[in-house]
Computed example of a mutant assay.
Amino acid sequence: MNELKRGIYLLLIVIMIIFGLASRANGSSHPAFLAENAGDALWAAMVYFGFRFLFVRKSLQTAMLLSVLFSFGIEFSQLYQADWINQIRNTLLGALILGKGFLAVDLVRYTAGIIVAVFLDWCIFIRSNPRK
């Protein structure tokens, strides 16, 4: 069962990446609210599903806490602006993972993305199989 769950979490990670990149690439074709907020929420949801993939036997609450700590840690790390880390942030992959500059509203976006991911996870694995 754990291998099936890992496969589903991996699929969800890929879906979050695809939707997240699409939200950035085609932002002007989306409603303003989605264009401004979806990318960060999807990034945080991807982080959540990543923790679920890695720690499939742990609780939803554990994955949620780790996701919040990781996402907030990345955001607060953007307050640190040394040349070496800014060179990493100036690459496409570095910008996607580390971001570029601190925005307090991103913390709200991350929290919303994680909450939606936890709810989706609950619907797939807990609600559909109440004995587990």
Rank of each mutant, 00 (worst) to 15 (best):
L107R: 08
I74H: 02
R131P: 13
I18V: 14
F19N: 12
L103S: 06
V118T: 07
A32T: 10
M46R: 13
G7E: 05
E75L: 13
G27E: 00
S77D: 01
D40F: 00
M16S: 15
N26H: 14
F70T: 13
L107E: 08
L120S: 02
I74S: 01
G94A: 02
H30R: 15
I126F: 07
G101L: 14
L98N: 11
R24C: 05
L11Y: 08
L92V: 09
Q78S: 01
S29N: 11
R6Q: 10
Q87C: 03
L54K: 02
F72R: 03
W122F: 03
A35T: 04
V105I: 15
D106H: 11
A117T: 04
I85E: 06
L120K: 00
Y110V: 14
F53D: 03
S71Q: 05
R109Y: 07
T91A: 01
F72M: 03
A104P: 01
I85P: 06
G39Y: 00
M46T: 14
S67P: 03
I13D: 13
G39C: 01
L4H: 04
Q87W: 07
M64G: 10
A112S: 08
E36K: 15
L11I: 09
G73I: 06
F49A: 05
F55S: 07
I74N: 07
W43P: 02
R57H: 15
S128R: 06
M1I: 09
Q87F: 08
M16Q: 14
Y110K: 12
E75C: 13
L11R: 07
G94F: 05
I126W: 02
L66M: 10
W43I: 00
M1D: 04
L96N: 06
E75I: 15
A95E: 14
N26P: 07
Q87I: 09
I126P: 03
L54N: 05
F76L: 15
V108Y: 15
Q78C: 04
E3A: 14
F72G: 00
Y9A: 07
A104K: 05
